[in-house]
Computed example of a mutant assay.
Amino acid sequence: MNFKAPHIITEGAISYELGSLKGREIKYDFDKILVYLDAKGKLLFGKKFRIYREDREILYKLSLYFIQDKERCKQLDIDVDKGLLLSGPVGCGKTSLMKLFKFMVPHQRPYEVIPSRNIVFGFNHLGFKIIGDYGNNQSFCFDDMGVEPDGVHFGKECNVMGEILLSRYELFTDHRLKTHATTNLNAQELEARYGNRVRSRMRELFNLVGFDKDCRDKR
């Protein structure tokens, strides 16, 4: 990674210039960002990956968020200091995009994408230690949140992801540490799954960015 030119990303023998440097400020070019995302997506997920024209609006919002364009984000009611909750129907590409976008800003703090159901399986095996493990100072994106089962450890039931979100909220308020997530559920379904207290914390933790409910299945 070139820290002096974080807008230039090299993949193999090819360099992708996502914009231009004006003094100490990067002027990003959205079309150049899309070229990079398409190329990196093919490297990560195979040659069938592609950027869809109908996703242009959501890709624009995500790009503005990740490049921290505070002025334009404010116009779109996106808070660059919060995390992202990317919602949409099954197969619309949420997980792939969250795995992909972090490569666009290698100079920013990285996050790990973890399936929520895997966290619950870890709880069933190891118990409450798992909740502490995800309430630490790392950054995470909890994938497919809301459809994971409840955890059970030695007969004790626990809404594992709900408890972890409460821990992540404390990290956000105390240390401004971001949390991201993807979900197939809408706001009412999330509240039914996690309860009103967690849902209110989620409003403070996340910017909600959503695919259209009629978005095509891209799998």
Rank of each mutant, 00 (worst) to 15 (best):
I14E: 13
I14S: 06
Y16I: 09
E17C: 09
E17N: 14
G23Q: 09
G23C: 03
G23V: 06
G23L: 11
R24D: 12
R24Q: 11
E25Q: 13
E25M: 10
I26G: 01
K27Y: 09
K27D: 10
Y28E: 05
D29S: 13
D29N: 15
D29V: 06
D29I: 11
D29G: 04
F30I: 15
F30Q: 14
D31E: 15
D31R: 12
D31C: 05
I33A: 07
V35D: 02
V35H: 00
V35K: 08
Y36W: 15
L37Q: 08
D38T: 11
D38V: 04
A39W: 02
A39G: 01
A39I: 00
K40L: 02
G41D: 13
G41N: 13
G41H: 13
L43Y: 04
F45Y: 07
F45C: 10
G46R: 03
G46Y: 01
K47Y: 07
I51R: 04
Y52R: 13
E54N: 07
E54K: 08
E54P: 00
E54L: 06
D55C: 06
R56P: 01
E57Q: 13
I58H: 01
L59R: 00
L62T: 09
L62S: 08
L62W: 10
S63R: 06
S63N: 10
S63E: 09
L64D: 02
Y65H: 01
I67A: 03
I67E: 03
I67N: 03
I67D: 10
Q68V: 09
D69T: 07
R72I: 07
R72G: 00
R72S: 08
C73R: 07
K74P: 01
Q75L: 14
Q75N: 11
L76T: 12
L76W: 13
L76S: 14
D77S: 12
D77A: 14
D79Q: 07
V80I: 15
V80R: 02
D81K: 14
K82F: 02
G83C: 08
G83V: 03
G83H: 05
L84M: 14
L86N: 00
L86V: 11
L86T: 03
S87T: 13
G88Y: 01
G88E: 06
P89A: 12
V90E: 13
G91T: 05
G91I: 06
G91D: 11
G91Q: 09
C92Y: 00
K94F: 04
T95R: 08
S96C: 04
S96G: 00
S96F: 09
L97S: 02
L97N: 12
L97Y: 08
M98W: 07
M98D: 05
L100H: 03
L100N: 11
F101H: 06
F101A: 05
F101E: 02
K102R: 15
K102L: 11
M104I: 01
M104H: 02
V105C: 09
H107K: 09
H107I: 03
H107V: 00
H107E: 15
Q108R: 10
R109V: 09
E112D: 10
V113Y: 03
I114V: 15
I114C: 08
I114D: 10
I114K: 09
P115Q: 03
S116C: 06
R117D: 05
N118S: 14
